[in-house]
């Protein structure tokens, strides 16, 4: 398998990192198992739950559906990269204040997805938030609080 490995660079949360992995390694598994960034979650590995949502060049994507090698030269932002030092991102603050989670397993994906949503300009109404956050499942059912958290944070960005 070593022969098949390819080498590439991804900027993750502002830091350029070099990898040498097989082409079938997904971005999600790369983050979790090789980059030590387990904040991004695996809920299904099939693009069906949104737990693995990260931002690639500013756009929200399901990282379980992306091959790592194809991110060569791109910028990836994960949940670990949102806070500025000890200063939480407004979405992170909003999620805490509105108790927008229970178990917390869908949370990093929800927050990254919400950031993408706000940048897409689709967080302007409750209906729009509900519709365009529907790719992120929350089995704990914290949906109402997630909407409230996004509504609060959208004005602070």
């Amino acid at each position: 398998m070593d022969d098949a490995s390819s080498s590439f660079e991804i900027t993750i949360n502002g830091t350029k990192r070099h990898f040498n992995v097989e082409p079938w390694v997904t971005l999600l598994d790369l983050l979790r198992e090789r980059a030590g960034l387990t904040g991004t979650k695996k809920g299904c590995d099939h693009g069906q739950c949104g737990a693995c949502t990260v931002l690639v060049d500013g756009q929200r994507v399901n990282s379980c559906l992306m091959l790592a090698v194809m991110q060569d030269g791109k910028e990836v932002t994960t949940i670990e990269g949102l806070a500025a030092g000890n200063e939480l991102h407004p979405l992170q603050r909003g999620f805490i204040q509105h108790d927008a989670f229970q178990c917390g397993y869908c949370t990093p994906g929800q927050i990254c997805s919400a950031l993408g949503l706000i940048r897409e300009g689709k967080a302007d109404s409750v209906d729009s938030i509900r519709e365009f956050m529907s790719g992120n499942l929350c089995r704990c059912g914290a949906y109402s609080n997630i909407v409230a958290a996004i509504e609060q944070a959208r004005g602070q960005l």
């Binding site: 387990t38 991004t40 695996k42 994960t78 806070a83 939480l88 108790d99 917390g104 949370t107």
Partner: peptide
Amino acid sequence: LDRVDGLAKVTGKALYAAE
């Protein structure tokens, strides 16, 4: 009150069984 484990959960620092 806010959850005391909220910070760990929104920053990705909470480690689950496979992490």
